[in-house]
């Protein structure tokens, strides 16, 4: 797989370089064009100051009324809480109503009861040349008489870097080594069980449905635990040569975890009328990566960067499904250290 993709990054890099060169040329062209600074917004010289004292008795009455009704709503909250505390809707209406009514009172008071004033404040300059100069001078005066300035600065810098590094080092204790990232609970002979711990027999697996299996005695909460099990008619199975023995009786198992972003795959498409339908496929409900169980988990649509990892199966003497080995590649989302499939 990686051999096929090798030439691509190179051509892509060349293309990217070309785009960068073009962008730079465009930027230069933009800069060399003499653009006038856009016109400043208009300034108005009229005096907008005014102060109106409303003396509005009706508005005062309205505000008083709103405040009193708000008080009623607030009281109702307490009453509802005591009488039927699980009534979320009534509690919400009581508290929300009280706050909204108080809000209305405040806004009416702010607009019609208190003096309405338009006021002008002058903006001072933020940069005061003289003050800034003096401040710079005062700070620099603190270093008066020091001759080994570079030495002191260098020493301070070294100590600073060392202390920051020392302070950041304990971050490493948050995480363990990366070895566990390659482990799954599946080994040769592990039985496939359902979420109640009942082992799957090969005969349990019907065509047209998918089954979620977990490793017997393995931690079901680990990312590698869940596998999808399906049975396909032989006409749909086109496994690579190396995987010929992985699907006894046409039963296939794949990691349930999408190799794109780690969601559990939960959609299974099975053709109801073979001549016109597409072949059986798994789809992840998060970003809709679609994989073909009949073709070793090959991706046919969606953003996943690699195929769905397959778990080799075998059927033991009593008819139970067992893993023929662990996974041959890492399951879960791709990352820098991942072991990809060789086939």
């Amino acid at each position: 797989m990686s051999h096929e993709e090798d030439p691509k990054p190179v051509t892509r890099a060349v293309k990217a370089l070309g785009v960068l060169v073009a962008l730079r040329a465009a930027a230069r062209a933009v800069r060399s064009r003499t653009t006038e600074p856009p016109p400043r917004p208009p300034e108005s010289e009229i005096d907008p100051r005014r102060r109106i004292v409303p003396a509005n008795r009706r508005a005062e009455t309205l505000v008083a009324g709103l405040i009193l009704i708000a008080a009623l709503f607030a009281l109702a909250f307490t009453v509802i809480y005591i009488v039927s505390s699980d009534d979320t809707q009534l509690l919400g209406v009581a508290m929300g109503g009280a706050l909204c009514l108080l809000a209305a009172a405040c806004i009416v008071a702010g607009k019609f009861v208190v003096p309405q004033e338009t006021h002008v404040e002058e903006r001072g300059a933020l940069l005061d040349e003289e003050q800034t100069g003096e401040a710079v001078g005062m700070i620099e005066a603190g270093g008066e008489g020091i001759s080994r300035r570079a030495l002191l600065t260098g020493a301070g810098g070294v100590a600073g870097v060392a202390i920051v590094t020392a302070a950041a080092t304990p971050l490493a204790s948050l995480g363990p080594t990366l070895k566990e990232f390659h482990e799954t609970p599946w080994t040769r002979g592990t039985r496939l069980v359902d979420d109640q711990g009942r082992p799957f027999r090969a005969d349990d697996i019907q065509i047209g449905s998918f089954y979620t299996a977990l490793p017997e005695h393995g931690d079901p909460e680990s990312l590698g635990a869940g596998v999808l099990v399906v049975r396909l008619p032989a006409s749909y199975i086109h496994l690579p040569e190396a995987r010929r023995d992985w699907a006894p009786e046409g039963i296939l198992a794949y990691s349930k975890i999408c190799p794109h972003a780690g969601c559990a795959i939960a959609l299974y498409r099975y053709p109801t009328y073979a001549p016109t339908s597409q072949e059986p496929a798994f789809t992840c409900p998060c970003h809709y990566s679609t994989f073909l169980p009949g073709e070793g988990g090959r991706l046919v649509f969606g953003p996943a960067g690699r195929a769905l990892p397959q778990l080799p199966l075998m059927v033991d003497g009593e008819g139970y499904l067992r893993a023929a080995s662990g996974f041959h590649e890492d399951i879960g989302p791709s990352w820098w250290g991942i072991h990809r499939s060789q086939s």
């Binding site: 400043r40 300034e43 108005s44 010289e45 009229i46 005096d47 907008p48 100051r49 706050l99 909204c100 108080l102 809000a103 209305a104 009172a105 405040c106 806004i107 008071a109 702010g110 607009k111 208190v114 003096p115 309405q116 004033e117 338009t118 006021h119 002008v120 404040e121 002058e122 903006r123």
Partner: peptide
């Protein structure tokens, strides 16, 4: 009345404070 070097509007006390508290409650 609005210029670059001034700011024209409602002073904080009392009208704006009431309106803003009103907004908070709303």
């Amino acid at each position: 009345g609005r210029r670059e070097r001034n700011v024209v509007g409602t002073p904080m006390w009392p009208a704006y404070a009431l309106r803003s508290i009103g907004l908070m409650l709303a």
